[in-house]
Design a binder for these strands. Structure first.
Length: 245
DNA sequence: ATTTACGGGATTGGGG
DNA sequence: ACCCCAATCCCGTAAA
């Protein structure tokens, strides 16, 4: 399945995606900011006063987020390479040991830092794709799973005020205390549930991922973490999907 | 003391 | 019939 050739092309595809992604991020920022402004006028002040835990990560600063996403992408690249090399990379088998673990002090270890690799500084951004990538849910047949949905949300800058990646921690994401319920609602709608989904129930489903190790809970409030394998798979699907558009 | 998040057992239900 | 995954319910605990 993962012959060296395929692996190579996969990587190339991903590289392309990452470059494209970065470009699109810049482009989307405009839209994003607009939405933020809307939210501020109707809802409440977003991204400024929200959950500013003293000394803790400040939630979604636009620039920082963008930076961290790129950083994060690089890390994923590294882990992807590792995962492929060790051939432990399938979309069903989950290796519990590949889950990133928390350090005793509660900070998340960044196990992906090992293969530090700059993101192809040789490639120049010139062939910019024009369409914004809307991630389509379950691709052909496969049932949409909760973590797919969450990943989708996380990749959507417009949702950054509800869920977002935790800067500088690969695969770690965090719900907004204010808007976590909104994510749940969307999830419920997506599934076509009769009863409205709540964060309480969604997080229960999320906790079930601990068994398989697909997502684990980190000790910080409202934050969870994808396993390396899950993340790689998602990123991979994501990029392939985009590349084929 | 109160509220909010977390954890998880148990059960149900849809879908493969 | 069986399993997987998610939804629900619900109760206890931890933490802020």
């Amino acid at each position: 399945m993962n012959s060296p050739q395929e692996y190579q092309t996969d990587l190339e595809v991903i590289l392309e995606f990452l470059e494209e992604h970065y470009r699109q991020e810049s482009r989307r920022k405009a839209i994003w900011n607009m939405r933020d402004l809307c939210a501020m006028s109707t809802d409440e002040v977003v991204n400024t006063s929200e959950e500013k835990l003293p000394g803790e990560e400040h939630f979604s600063n636009v620039l920082e987020q963008e930076k961290s996403q790129l950083q994060f992408s690089e890390q994923v690249m590294g882990s992807l390479a590792k995962a492929n090399r060790s051939d432990s990379y399938t979309d069903t088998v989950v290796d519990q040991s590949s889950v990133l673990h928390d350090a005793p002090d509660g900070r998340v270890l960044n196990a992906l830092n090992g293969p530090e690799r700059p993101l192809t500084p040789n490639t120049t951004p010139e062939k910019c794709a024009e369409s914004l990538p809307s991630i389509t849910p379950a691709e052909k047949g496969k049932k949409l799973r909760l973590f797919h949905f969450l990943f989708e949300m996380l990749e959507d800058p417009g949702m950054a005020h509800c869920v977002s990646w935790v800067p500088a921690s690969a695969g770690v994401f965090r719900f907004s205390a204010r808007h976590k319920e909104h994510v749940a609602e969307l999830w419920g709608q997506r599934k076509g549930n009769r009863m409205p989904m709540t964060y309480q129930k969604m997080s229960r489903a999320l906790r079930n991922y601990a068994r398989s190790g697909e997502i684990i809970k980190v000790k910080k409030k409202l934050t969870y973490q994808f396993s390396v394998v899950t993340l790689s798979t998602l990123q991979n699907q994501h990029s392939i999907k985009k590349a084929s558009k």
